[in-house]
Design a protein around this nucleic acid. Structure first.
Length: 583
RNA sequence: GCCGCCUUAGCUCAGUGGUAGAGCAGGGCAUUUGUAAUGCUCAGGUCGGGGGUUCAAAUCCCUCAGGCGGCUCCA
């Protein structure tokens, strides 16, 4: 989950922190045997970690919440107390709080601070509210496991999450937002709108695109391919399997092994399913001698890759095991780098805007501690990236040392309709692979020179981006993307011939149209089509048939009046060209 | 992968030891309808798979799979 009203978060931190103490207080009251971990404020609320053998049940949470409300209502003052470390250690030894003891031992200095509210005392640096009474509205949200000190070898704690506010209205607003997030969840909408599925029989993290989801994906792909071709990219296809040797040369077997599916043994080879597209593109590059005259080469592939993600991290379409990247690799001369980067950045933004996103966060990640290539090259590449970002006129942030070992990169995140951000585009300079594969071209002096390689994905993974789109539009895709753009709804059987005529004409014109010939009342047909979030409905009754018109209805907007068929075709044509935020 | 929870009809969910239920969706019939749910009727489940306890298991236990919430991870 992302920030809830950015501007408020800082103010609410002590607030949430205090509520986490109230949580711990309540838990100790009700379950004295529980041992306390830590309980900070987080981006959206707070949590507290507890060590307890039995899991907390939903009923437990209810009891705890009731007790918390009592503690809050009691208006206990939060008293800060300074203690000698030895005294504090003695205290926690007596109370058996071994996790607190562990923390104290690692704290610098010989004083520590406690916060006391009524009978409850906790080791804490603060700051806190002056009284528990400030917390007027609170709720517990969930309980989940966590490792003590985030170490999977240590004790498993139970982490209780909650949130609180100074008034009930703010809490209600927050819960409303949670509800909204749930309603937009692409996993729910994927089922409701029959877009895609996962199949137990096939395995986790593998996407089955149903006709409607596939229709959207196909439009996305066609659009991307077309835009790339307009910008001098060429399309490649590379095999899904290739010899293990290739992955040894690329280095993936060394540092990416845990994500590669086990090898397929065939005859005298061991084949790996590709987790990346780059080595394949490189083989094509190396297939013959390259001249500086043909650079830059911009090679793109809708490249489907498979990565063995741990089962616990899979999440709908956002984290899968098989996905398709809108991948491209640009091989260029060092002197072309600036232009190629600049073009790639503005290309990425164009594409993201087309899909309806208007707000971006751009990150420039620079050289990490461990790196390959020369410092001079890194500097030049980082400089090129910087210029590329500056050219598009959007503020960006530098993440020092966050680059990958093989080169600096630019990441672009989009903000969706709820203000949540999602990582999409990435533009990375690579000093590693050209070296490993010994790439070269013949320069104008007839000498061999190493090309610079840029990895670039615009949407990232089609699956993931599709999931984000579903949530962004709440399943109501804009006209140009909608799997069904218009539904023809005859009012009675008597209009079915006319309806068929309209349906066929629109279909022939290339629109994605369905016709509802079911034996239902028109209001039922409309309801069904509205629930499917079809952008336009053409309702045809006796009057329309006689006049050769259609009664048009737009999703979410209701009746749009009666228009002629020609007007309808013209209108739909126009809508086709409306990308970006338009419906 | 780890911890916890969950898995009953296509979907959403009742049913806690005595051999399965509702609404929606689907099929059929009637109805021919004017902008978000016409009525009647039928069909649909080896209760996620396997094993165990018991006279008897959707229900209790074990195990596997999948999902969910987190943790960790996401060069």
């Amino acid at each position: 989950m992302q920030n809830f009203m950015n501007e408020k978060i800082e103010d609410l931190q002590p607030f949430w922190h205090t509520t986490s103490h109230i949580l711990a207080h309540a838990v100790k009251d009700l379950y004295p045997e529980v041992k306390l971990g830590t309980g900070p404020a987080i981006e959206n609320g707070f949590y507290y970690d507890f060590y307890r053998l039995q899991p907390f049940t939903p009923e437990d949470l209810k009891r705890i919440e009731v007790r918390m409300k009592e503690i809050a209502a009691a208006g206990l003052p939060m008293v800060r107390e300074e203690r000698d470390k030895s005294e504090a250690e003695e205290f926690f030894r007596k109370t058996g709080e071994n996790f607190k003891l562990e923390i104290i031992k690692e704290l610098p200095g010989d004083k520590v601070t406690f916060y006391r509210q009524g009978e409850f005392i906790d080791l804490c640096a603060g700051p806190h509210l002056e009284s528990t009474g400030k917390v007027k509205a609170l709720t517990l949200l969930s309980v989940a496991a966590s490792y003590w000190r985030a170490d999977e070898k240590r004790e498993s704690m139970q982490r209780i999450y909650g949130i609180s506010f100074p008034d009930q209205a703010a809490l209600d607003e927050y819960l409303e937002r949670l509800k909204e997030i749930k309603e937009r969840d692409h996993r729910r909408l994927g089922v409701e709108l029959d877009l895609y599925s996962f199949q137990d029989e096939a395995g986790p993290g593998l996407v089955f695109w149903h006709p409607k989801g596939a229709a959207v994906r196909h439009i996305m792909e066609e659009y991307l391919i077309h835009e790339q071709q307009k910008r001098g990219y060429q399309i490649l296809y590379t095999p899904h399997l290739s010899d293990e040797h290739l992955w040894q040369v690329s280095g993936h077997l060394d540092f990416y092994r845990q994500y590669i599916f086990p090898a397929l043994e065939t005859e005298n080879r061991r084949l790996l399913v590709k987790p990346m597209n780059c080595p394949g593109h490189i083989l094509i590059y190396k297939n013959r001698l390259r001249s500086y005259r043909e650079l830059p080469l911009r090679w793109a592939e809708m490249g489907t890759v498979y990565r063995l993600e741990k089962s616990g991290v899979l999440h709908g379409l956002l984290r899968v095991r098989g996905f398709t990247q809108d991948d491209a690799h640009i091989f260029c001369r060092p002197e072309d780098l600036d232009k190629e980067i600049k073009d790639a950045v503005s290309f990425a933004l164009d594409v993201l805007r087309t899909f309806g996103f208007a707000e971006f966060e751009i990150f420039l990640s620079t050289r990490p501690e461990k790196f390959v290539g020369s410092e001079g090259n890194w500097e030049r590449a980082t400089d090129a990236l910087k210029k590329g970002v500056e050219a598009v006129g959007i503020a960006y942030r530098v993440d020092p040392g966050e680059g990958v070992f093989y080169g600096p990169k630019i990441d672009i995140k989009i903000k969706d309709a709820l203000g949540r951000s999602w990582q999409c585009s990435t533009i990375q300079v690579d000093f590693n692979l050209p070296e490993r594969f010994g790439l070269s071209f013949i320069n104008s002096e007839g000498k061999e020179e190493q090309p610079i390689m840029i990895h670039r994905a615009l949407l990232g993974s089609l699956e993931r981006f599709f999931g984000v789109l579903v949530e962004h539009y709440k399943g109501a895709f804009p006209f140009w993307l909608a799997p069904v753009q218009l539904a023809v709804l005859p009012i009675t059987e008597k209009e079915s011939d006319y309806a068929q005529k309209v349906f066929e004409r629109l279909t022939k014109d290339g629109f994605r149209v369905m016709i509802d010939n079911s034996d239902e009342k028109i209001s039922k047909k409309i309801r069904r089509a509205e629930l499917e979030k079809i952008p336009f409905l053409a309702i045809l009754g006796k009057r329309e048939q006689e006049a050769g018109t259609v009664s048009l209805r737009q999703h979410g907007k209701g009746e749009q009046g009666v228009i002629s068929r020609e007007e309808l075709f013209a209108k739909l044509k126009e809508f086709c060209n409306q990308t970006g935020g338009a419906t």
